[in-house]
Design a protein around this nucleic acid. Structure first.
Lengths: 153, 153
DNA sequence: TGAAGATGATTGACATGTCAAGCAGTTTGC
DNA sequence: GCAAACTGCTTGACATGTCAATCATCTTCA
């Protein structure tokens, strides 16, 4: 069953390229829903989880708010508000930078670190369950998607 | 520049599969932003545009509200409210079905049809500008994404 | 030095996405 | 028939995403 039947389109796609665009959008959406499960069952949204993973990678130094935004898909204002919530939940500490008082450094708390550790294996397992492709096909996919993103710049 | 640098991840991906998941999510997001331009410049959101395209495909008979939802990525409640707005703008007519009074048939209006026609070439052109891949690679991409979606069921 | 501009972050207003609950109308099975 | 279950759609409440505007703080450079 191709995407054509899958989204029950009556008319054929205008072009193979258009079909590809829609296929990428739909696949991403399906993936998002699938991946969200184990994260949301622990009271985090997928976006909050992503922030925490980035902050974990940053270590004890933490990161400025906008640096976190730069590593994510989200726009700036969304980060501020997500960070507010994570702070409320006790998963993030924020502190104004002393040398540049415009910046606010965000750091993951021990509680959040513990939670992430607990979730790691479930999430990693889910990724490999979800993407079951021969090595060659997987590499090709990564290459093609990168091509597309580059041509978007 | 790979996705690794692109999203400035400090640590490597846990697996190639995880990298693929993130690549699909990010590519979809980049695409969405790119494609939105010509649609939003005419006062429609991407979602409203999708609904109108589906209704155009359905012809003068129209479609029940939930049938439109089924052809889209959106969940049911979102459709009701998007349809409210399209009706307000005069782009959609709604009428309760006589034989099954639970259903509400939605039809595209002539005004919306004209608007869509005006937008068609711009959108189609954008798709082919955006996806610039050799034929073989394009076909492979479609096949791989379909594989992934099927394994999500 | 001090005014103009850049940068980091936040807020307001609004669009969309989602679940849970609810209502109206249909169907089913006794 | 008629109560129970199902279906189609809508609403409420809330999370997220986005733009534009704003505030505070640097930086630059005449």
């Amino acid at each position: 069953m191709g995407l054509l039947q899958e989204i029950k389109q009556t008319k054929p796609f205008a072009s193979r390229e258009q079909e590809a665009v829609l296929a990428i959008l739909k696949t991403a959406d399906d993936l998002r829903r699938r991946i969200a499960g184990p994260v949301e069952s622990r009271g985090l949204s997928l976006e909050q989880y992503n922030i925490l993973r980035i902050l974990r990678g940053a270590g004890t130094a933490g990161l400025p708010t906008l640096e976190v935004a730069a590593r994510m898909i989200e726009r700036t204002p969304a980060i501020t508000r997500l960070m507010d919530k994570l702070e409320q939940k006790g998963f993030v500490d924020r502190e104004r930078c002393l040398t540049d008082r415009r910046q606010v450094f965000c750091r993951i708390t021990p509680a959040a670190l513990a939670l992430l550790t607990e979730m790691d294996s479930a999430v990693i397992g889910l990724d490999s369950q979800t993407i079951q492709l021969p090595e060659v096909e997987l590499e090709q996919l990564l290459k093609t998607l990168q091509n597309i993103r580059e041509s978007l710049t």
